[in-house]
Nucleic acid binder design. Structure first.
Lengths: 269, 269
DNA sequence: AGATTTGGTTCATATATTGAACCTTTATTT
DNA sequence: AAATAAAGGTTCAATATATGAACCAAATCT
């Protein structure tokens, strides 16, 4: 692994719950030598990606990130295009909704939006979504580049007892997502969280990310599920449009079929 | 120079005006070998700091930056604390106001705010402020760490004919800033832009950044100058407070003396 | 269709990275 | 207040990693 990659990986150890890290502590976490880690931090500091708190001498993320993030959002205004539809989705479903962005082989958390309807809420606080364990990830595998599947199977981390653990099981879930147009997980990343997701597209015509609703399991009734599915489709259309793309016909068809079947089940019961 | 630093420097070539860069183009700009640059971009892509536009094959800033920037702002909420006072400053002066953040030996542009009063406006679109050529930089040199001065003199880039070009001249300007509490430049970075700046402090008691007003030269009358100085002092107090610090007594005294002298000059004239 | 540019890859060479050991400063304990 | 521990920071020989000339493939232009 290149020295640059090792340096950049250090950034991932910083999070809202661990905003400042001392040199020694970071060495332990990253399992690296102290001299090496120190030099890596120096490189990051030169560029303003991290800085040292003069009071504690610990390191924290730096001010250059704000600058770069602004430029990114000017370049590719994903957040701007997702905000309103996501708010609407959260309001309509009463559950936490979130949007992710595909880049390379990784699905990045772009933003999440909680609904004020309930006081027990799902909080989305991970930087990237595991492809095999989240509804968003299943959408990415179902509608994204072919080689993602291989990448996903390289390490099937088990987050809960319900996490998909075999390649066959993953294949089945992905096929199901492709057929229905919806990625669905029930407690596979966080126990007691049921999620539904749909793909989002941009002007390249390729998968650009996904939008999802993460619901508290006990609230996830068939009725809610139907509401979520309907509004997810709408959110995907809106966000795709804002991102310069459109939902492909095959996905629209899959949604139509799935929503129709749901309705039939309801009326017959 | 370390490989990691060279990799990170690539990020600086991306800007709102140059949002996407092809491999060959980046090699020319950075004066690097193609194979090297390609590998560096790979490292950045792995971490999500850049991504490749699938349509153009060119590279652009990546989605991980939004994530990291959010964490930075949660860790050190500079933007949040600066927004309202900056708005007030721009409204009171009718000129573009901006806040910078000191990190290491670099003064980073945090945010700027234009006033709608005039249709000719100064636009602040640089990622970092040269210490010797901007009012904000002079404040940093006057009230920041001692070793900044040495760093600043290493390369006195000439942006305009009025840019400070000698160590002695820089020393004089910094001394003046220290005495008056205000950094002042007249066309030293952009011709036709006159700037005034004051230091901002955080809970460490050290200089944390600066707040400045950049005015179109022809509008910069003694009357406006007095208004700007008064409101800069207020903005610095407010932002310092929001950042957990206070303006040190010596700075307050310098301001008081300077503002009093201004008033005297006005009444006698 | 041929030429040209750009993205991407290979491999021997040489240079930058590494980590054990050491030093210095700061914080804690006795 | 002195002793101790812990953390930040530095050095240098060994060696793993970065480098760039040359090359290939694919896309774009003429």
């Amino acid at each position: 692994m290149s020295s640059a990659s090792k340096t950049l990986e250090l950034l991932d150890y910083f999070s809202p719950t661990r905003p400042e890290i001392g040199l020694s502590q970071l060495c332990v976490m990253a399992r690296r030598d102290k001299a090496t880690t120190y030099r890596h931090l120096q490189s990051l500091e030169e560029t303003g990606l991290v800085e040292q708190n003069p009071m504690t001498r610990r390191y924290r993320l730096g001010p250059a990130l704000l600058q770069l993030a602004r430029t990114r959002e000017v370049t590719v205004p994903r957040k701007n295009g997702a905000e309103a539809p996501l708010r609407a989705l959260a309001d309509a479903t009463g559950e936490t909704s979130h949007v992710s962005v595909m880049s390379g082989k990784t699905l990045y958390n772009l933003m999440s939006c909680e609904s004020p309807r309930h006081s027990i809420r799902v909080i989305i606080d991970i930087p990237t979504f595991p492809l095999h364990a989240t509804a968003s990830g299943l959408c990415a595998l179902a509608f994204g580049r072919e080689d993602l599947f291989e990448a996903a199977t390289e390490r099937l981390a088990a987050f809960t007892p319900k996490t998909i653990a075999s390649i066959d099981a993953l294949h089945a879930s992905v096929s199901s997502a492709r057929e229905t147009g919806f990625g669905k997980t029930m407690g596979s990343f966080e126990i007691d969280v049921h999620s539904l997701a749909v793909p989002v597209f941009d002007q390249s015509g390729l998968l650009a990310g996904s939008v999802a609703v993460a619901s508290v399991a006990t609230r996830f009734t068939p009725n809610l599920e139907h509401i979520v599915r309907t509004h997810l489709a709408k959110a995907s259309r809106d966000i795709s449009h804002n991102w310069g793309g459109t939902v492909p016909a095959n996905v629209e068809q899959a949604w139509a079929k799935t929503l129709k079947r749901c309705q039939e089940l309801e009326t017959t019961s």
